[in-house]
């Protein structure tokens, strides 16, 4: 049921863009909405990150899978259990670039006879990695619309991505992989009863939205073609703040760009901010040096000390009267 709502929502967005651009709203969908979406994305994301930057650093939680640094002759695990900032940076980078914790993902299953079994489950990791890298590749390839002259690496990327040369224009490996991987991630939530129970509309919407973006992009490239030169004029106009509303790009292009705008505007407020948040995972980015460095919480009350000398001064007369010896003589 929850996935139905997501489908309805994304379908409605697509219908709005299609009907709106037909009804003469081209400028709205080609210029106003993308600018608004980009502003929402930048301001929203910055606000979230600034919010995190203003929060105190938590106490270091050494969840690690390796030997802590101790005596010099015991080999320590520098990346899994880093004791230095550099090691922690390496751990964060591996997390962001290779999804290292997801690699350790296991799956709990009730086998026949009520036996509970845990087994390695690398499929989630593989699909997540495939999905994220295809997404990055596609984003970088789209630079051909925004940059003039187009940076050299875009041609290289396109060459590698289209190396199979299937069809004219070529099918890109990344766009096919994106659909397959995002399809797997959606199917995983739908087919596994445990996951279906746990999944909320906020889990389905990003996946459905991405699949709709990829589907509209693939249709634009291979079936309902658009005038790419006009698209380039639009994109270049947007980034140079001299927007032009192109003619003859077709309703499907407006669907594509409106869904992309929706994705960017939605990102800071959804679970997709994990893109920024991953760098602030406390169990990944803090070195395990609790025992060597004192951790001071900013909310700790100031320690008000009262030394013996001060105490002696406070009770000086009484101490003298009682005939006790004084330090200060």
């Amino acid at each position: 049921m929850r996935v139905i709502w997501s489908l309805v929502l994304v379908g409605a967005l697509a219908a709005i863009a299609f009907a709106g651009s037909r009804a003469g709203g081209e400028a709205v969908f080609a210029v106003a909405v993308p600018y608004l979406a980009l502003a929402t994305f930048l301001v929203g994301l910055s606000a979230r990150v600034i919010g995190w930057a203003r929060s105190p650093v938590p106490f270091r939680i050494p969840t690690s899978c390796g030997q802590q640094r101790s005596l010099p002759w015991i080999r320590s695990s520098r990346l899994d259990n880093p004791s230095t900032g550099l090691g922690a940076a390496g751990r964060v980078l591996l997390e962001a670039l290779a999804f290292r914790s997801l690699f350790r993902n296991t799956r709990a299953e009730l086998r026949e006879g009520g036996r509970l079994s845990y087994a390695a489950d690398k499929w989630l990791w593989a699909a997540a990695l495939a999905f994220h890298y295809s997404f990055l590749t596609i984003l970088l390839r789209h630079l051909r619309f925004f940059a003039e002259p187009v940076p050299g690496f875009v041609a290289l990327l396109q060459g590698l991505d289209g190396c199979f040369r299937v069809g004219v224009p070529t099918f890109y490996v990344s766009s096919v992989l994106l659909v397959v991987a995002a399809g797997f991630l959606l199917g995983r939530r739908l087919l596994d009863p445990k996951l279906r129970y746990l999944s909320l509309p906020a889990d389905y919407v990003p996946l459905v939205l991405l699949l709709a973006i990829a589907a509209s992009g693939l249709l634009l490239r291979h079936v309902y073609k658009t005038d790419l030169l006009a698209v380039k004029d639009l994109a270049v106009g947007l980034v140079t703040f001299r927007p032009v509303v192109p003619e003859g790009v077709g309703g499907l292009f407006y669907v594509h760009i409106f869904l992309v705008s929706s994705l960017f505007a939605y990102l800071p407020f959804s679970k997709l901010v994990h893109a920024a948040g991953i760098f602030l995972s406390p169990t990944r980015n803090l070195a395990n040096d609790n025992r060597r460095r004192r951790h001071v919480n900013p909310w700790n009350p100031p320690i008000v000390g009262h030394t013996y000398a001060e105490w002696e001064a406070d009770f000086h007369d009484k101490l003298v009267a009682a005939g006790l010896p004084l330090d200060k003589e």
Binding site: S46, V49, I50, W52, A53, R54, S55, P56, V57, A276, F279, L280, H295, V296, N297, P298
Partner: peptide, 12 residues
């Protein structure tokens, strides 16, 4: 303890 400087540098 705060790490605001590093986080803002990353954001920039």
């Amino acid at each position: 303890m705060y790490d605001g400087g590093k986080i803002l540098a990353g954001l920039a």
